[in-house]
């Protein structure tokens, strides 16, 4: 990028009302620092306290998913603490709502299980989401989950619109790019 391209880039960010964007490595320390800056910008934001809390909650769930599940890991795949993995997260403002987007690479074998988890959430009512959340809270931790199997349900509960997601193929790689969009 030269200066003029950087200006175009900055103008685009301003026009699209992007309040936060990060691409790179995600570790718990990095997520915690991002959480700080998001809290600060939310203090200034003209929205309800409830929307601010939901935005923060979705941010943490999405960012920690990248730490745990991105297929681009700097730390060994077997390591389940102090993990460092790559991805991106973005927060924007449109109309009177905030939205979050995140992306990370996922192994081809993870695409079908992710779809299975996310697809039903798109058509569930808030009541159904809350009930599924309560059931999952009381069940045993699912195999292969580093959290509680509650992450996507938490995000769906906090969202004001159905979740949007897609998988995009990568050039010269079997992995897929996973994108998730949440409007709060």
């Amino acid at each position: 990028m030269n200066y003029s391209e950087y200006r175009i880039f900055s103008d685009f960010v301003a026009q699209r009302k992007i309040v936060f964007y990060y691409y790179g490595y995600f570790s718990q320390t990095i997520v915690s620092a991002m959480a700080d800056t998001i809290k600060l910008s939310m203090k200034q934001a003209d929205t309800t306290a409830s929307a601010k809390r939901k935005l923060f909650s979705c941010f943490v769930e999405m960012a920690q998913n990248i730490i745990h599940y991105s297929s681009e890991a700097l730390t060994p795949a077997t390591q389940d603490d102090a993990e460092v993995r790559q991805g991106s997260v973005c927060i924007g403002h449109t109309g009177d709502r905030f939205y979050l987007m995140c992306s990370n690479r996922v192994a081809a074998s993870d695409v079908a299980p992710l779809r299975e988890k996310l697809e039903p959430l798109k058509s569930m009512t808030l009541e159904e989401i809350k009930r599924a959340y309560q059931d999952t809270l009381r069940s045993e931790q699912p195999e292969g989950s580093k959290g509680a199997g509650l992450g996507f349900l938490t995000v769906a509960r906090d969202a004001s619109e159905p979740l949007e997601f897609e998988f995009a193929p990568l050039d010269n790689h079997d992995d897929m790019m996973f994108y998730l969009k949440v409007t709060v």
Partner: peptide, 12 residues
Amino acid sequence: IYFNSSSTKMLF
């Protein structure tokens, strides 16, 4: 004042 999903499970 805030707990994430995996903390929720452990708090339970």
